[in-house]
């Protein structure tokens, strides 16, 4: 699966995020390689979504450095960039835990909006578009083609003219991924893409994510609770608990790490662990009370 010589696409160094007195992320460092799927896992409130929010500019990290090494454009220091400039310039795309589609716009429009910056330049910031110059019309045609490509990929072509809000849940999740891909990212951050999917849908999701990695050749960063998805497709796993990194390695390494097992036993959801391991450690001490999470 993974190539040992892959370049680090994203380097997170000593990331710390405090909300008032609450430390949501405490000195976390890890690396996500290009053309690999890196998963961040951890119990609820471990700070996973906060990491995402720091990466994509929604939060300003209290401390630490987030370096994205763009394969074509060179390094970006994400923590110094305004939120909207991270996708615009550093080409980092993301999806959201609670799907955020433009629900009263159609599926196709959602994908066209994602290509906003390219189209804005083509329309000479609206002026060329207003008078209908061919430069803009052809750019729009290309945007539709790209949208079409992704619609085919996520199997929504038939429903391209539906209001996005009218799609069923699983289709909305896929559309959100397609929309993120329409900005041509070099790093795609997915916040629990398998949440709420049935086994079959989550199987299809695995295939989609693998094909994004292999065919588009980009790095993926994934927050996920569904261990089937995580173990099956990840090249590299980072485990967070209480905002700290407790483990980091290949799926096999992480699975065997006692610190991970201990962290997960505090959770009520025992199916997140391989049952055999869970039983082994069932007698061990339970987790101390957590000081209120950030609500990942």
């Amino acid at each position: 699966m993974s190539d040992t010589a892959t370049a680090p696409l994203l380097a997170v160094d000593h990331l710390t995020m405090r909300f008032g007195g609450l430390v949501a992320i405490d000195d976390v460092s890890f690396v996500a390689a290009d053309r690999q799927i890196t998963a961040i896992i951890g119990p609820n409130g471990a700070g996973k979504t906060t990491v995402f929010n720091c990466l994509t500019g929604f939060y300003q990290p209290t401390e630490g450095r987030l370096t994205l090494t763009h394969p074509r454009k060179g390094p970006f220091l994400l923590e110094r960039m305004d939120g909207y400039r991270i996708p615009q310039e550093a080409d980092v795309a993301r999806t959201f835990q609670n799907i955020r589609l433009f629900s009263q716009m159609t599926v196709l429009e959602n994908l066209i909006v994602a290509q906003h910056n390219r189209l804005m330049r083509a329309s000479a910031f609206t002026l060329a578009g207003l008078v209908g110059l061919s430069r803009y019309t052809s750019a729009e045609k290309k945007a539709v083609e790209k949208a079409r490509y992704w619609l085919d990929k996520v199997n929504l072509t038939d429903r391209a003219d539906w209001d996005a809000g009218h799609l069923p849940y699983g289709a909305q999740r896929r559309l959100e991924i397609a929309r993120a891909m329409c900005i041509d990212p070099v790093l795609l951050c997915l916040d629990e893409p398998a949440a709420g999917l049935n086994p079959r849908e989550s199987h299809d999701l695995n295939r989609l994510l693998l094909s994004i990695r292999d065919e588009e050749g980009i790095g993926l960063l994934l927050i996920e609770h569904d261990m089937n998805v995580v173990m099956e497709i990840s090249d590299h796993i980072v485990v967070l608990d209480y905002g700290r990194k407790i483990s980091d390695g290949t799926p096999a390494e992480v699975r065997a790490d006692p610190a991970v097992i201990r962290a997960y036993l505090g959770e009520e959801e025992d199916e997140e662990l391989p049952p055999a391991v869970a039983e082994d450690l069932a007698a061990e001490k339970t987790h101390p009370e957590r000081p209120g999470g950030e609500g990942a």
Binding site: F58, G83, Y84, Q88, Q104, M105, V113, H116
Partner: peptide, 18 residues
């Protein structure tokens, strides 16, 4: 389209580089 998208969801807009 960006105006309408902004009306629908500003956060999603930011995540798309608008």
């Amino acid at each position: 389209r960006a105006w309408e998208a902004l009306r629908e969801d500003e956060i999603a807009c930011r995540s798309l580089g608008i």
